[in-house]
Simulated scan of single mutants.
Amino acid sequence: MKRILVVEDDKAICDLISINLEIVGYKVYKASDGYLAKKLVEEKSLDLILLDVMLPKIDGFTLISQIKNKNIPTIFVTAKESVLDRVMGLRLGADDYIVKPFEIIELIARIEAVLRRYDASPQNFIFKNIEVFYDQRIVKLDGELIELTYKEFDLLMLFIQNKNIALSRDQILEKVWGFDYAGETRTVDIHVQRLRDKLNLKDDIKTVFKVGYRLEG
């Protein structure tokens, strides 16, 4: 069952969308403001987000930037109908942009189209003797389960998806910890060392002098 987060501060619209999505077989989570939505993104395993733009606490454009590193398909569902708003939403990483009012049948069709695109991409990855099961967030080394923290898993995925590419510490912070992270690049060094130790990657994750790190393979 696919899991969809509906982020909408108008209760009537939120309920209408949620009921119809549940009828066609989706598991639905609801958030009435950007802060709660961000919290749910951190806590839940989501397949898609329906996101309003004009939200309390954190607006939709800001929120999509803050959760960009999660790589969750996102469709804006909003009353902001200008071309500039649509362009802004798509440039920020949205997969689609629907203007209110809309027909539920069209919304469901758009959701199905976005999910099909993502389902076509591989969900499992293999690097040498390491198996990564993306949906389950499971990592195995020589067939043995290895316990990784949430950030260690995201960091491993970033390296695998950018194999043989040098990534700066700032790029890693942005992709794994998000735009609003207030820490320092030393955090990256610590997590890289943990991955090297847990997955025997000492010879594979190379330190790039004055830049950051590169996974070679």
Score class of each variant (00 low, 15 high):
79 A>Q: 13
93 G>P: 05
114 V>C: 08
49 I>K: 01
53 V>Y: 02
33 D>S: 10
35 Y>W: 14
20 N>P: 04
101 P>F: 08
46 L>W: 03
56 P>V: 08
92 L>W: 06
98 I>P: 01
105 I>Q: 12
121 S>A: 11
120 A>Y: 08
114 V>S: 05
36 L>T: 09
90 L>Q: 09
87 V>L: 12
98 I>V: 15
105 I>T: 15
80 K>D: 08
105 I>N: 11
35 Y>T: 09
118 Y>L: 07
122 P>N: 09
80 K>Q: 12
38 K>D: 03
65 S>K: 13
97 Y>P: 01
50 L>A: 01
54 M>Q: 13
90 L>W: 09
39 K>H: 11
55 L>H: 05
49 I>Y: 00
84 L>I: 14
122 P>T: 06
100 K>L: 08
107 L>V: 06
99 V>M: 06
92 L>T: 05
59 D>I: 06
56 P>Y: 08
107 L>A: 06
111 I>F: 02
100 K>T: 09
89 G>H: 04
62 T>K: 14
116 R>V: 08
69 N>Y: 14
84 L>V: 14
56 P>L: 09
52 D>H: 07
62 T>I: 10
105 I>K: 12
108 I>Q: 04
55 L>K: 05
97 Y>F: 14
91 R>Y: 14
83 V>A: 15
49 I>N: 00
31 A>Y: 02
65 S>P: 04
68 K>D: 09
92 L>N: 10
56 P>E: 08
21 L>Y: 01
100 K>M: 09
39 K>S: 12
111 I>T: 03
103 E>Y: 11
86 R>T: 07
61 F>V: 09
83 V>D: 15
109 A>I: 10
115 L>I: 13
78 T>A: 07
23 I>Q: 12
100 K>I: 08
36 L>Y: 09
94 A>N: 04
85 D>A: 14
62 T>D: 15
24 V>I: 13
34 G>R: 04
105 I>M: 10
75 I>K: 00
